[in-house]
């Protein structure tokens, strides 16, 4: 464990908690893409099946349980409890265009042709594009609530910190996982546009609105 991975995990945890609390306290999921949240639930489910097969540490196991629990709770709040506030018209990204190619790629390019490894690879590839429905929805509505931008910032920062963690681990441990690194770079690049808007607008107290 190094400081970058720790802060990456804490940023990821913050994002998940911010979103869950925002929906719970405002009793509304307006502006939130339910499709992205379903993709994240799939990412955690397919990645953390090793909860059943191996124990790495209390930290590792508890964080995985929290991620899985919160992501399913968030999906439940969006599609069940507060479904009346779900903006289905703007959450129109065709996720099948993500899942099918990602699934195919996971079968073709992986470290080991075993079920757990292919599911892990699928979750790594899927996570790198899972935020697209959310970013697409913001581009369609032309704006985002400030709390949603904080959620997105933490979500994007987490994998950016992981990139630094992988540089650290390569330098000090000789460890590197090309699949995770390439997917992590793609994932972080997808946030660059948002990062620019967040820093130039939200951090200056303005609302995040895209030029319609």
């Amino acid at each position: 464990m190094n400081i970058f991975r720790l802060f990456g995990d804490l940023s990821h945890l913050a994002a998940i908690i911010i979103l869950l609390l925002k929906i719970w306290k405002s009793r509304s999921c307006a502006g939130i893409s339910g499709k992205s949240q379903i993709l994240f639930a799939i990412v955690f489910t397919t990645r953390y099946l090793d909860l059943l097969t191996s124990f790495i540490s209390l930290y590792n196991t508890s964080m995985k349980m929290i991620y899985i629990g919160c992501s399913y709770a968030t999906v439940y709040l969006i599609y069940a409890k507060f479904r009346a506030t779900y903006d289905g018209n703007h959450d129109s990204f065709r996720v099948e265009f993500l899942i099918v190619p990602v699934g195919g790629l996971a079968v073709l390019i992986n470290h080991d042709f075993s079920l757990l490894e292919i599911l892990w690879t699928f979750s790594i590839y899927l996570e790198s594009v899972a935020i697209l429905p959310q970013l697409f929805m913001i581009s369609k509505t032309g704006e985002a609530e400030t709390i949603t931008t904080h959620y997105l910032f933490c979500q994007g920062l987490y994998r950016a910190l992981y990139l630094i963690n992988w540089i650290w681990r390569f330098y000090f441990e000789g460890f590197f996982d090309m699949i995770a690194i390439v997917a992590g770079v793609v994932q972080t690049i997808l946030y660059c546009d948002f990062f620019y808007l967040y820093v130039t607008k939200v951090l200056k107290g303005k609302k995040l609105s895209l030029p319609a």
Binding site: D50, I56, Y67, H111, D112, N165
Partner: peptide, 10 residues
């Protein structure tokens, strides 16, 4: 056959 790398990251 490459050993599936131990997954210690989240």
């Amino acid at each position: 056959k490459k050993e599936a790398a131990m997954k210690d990251e989240l």
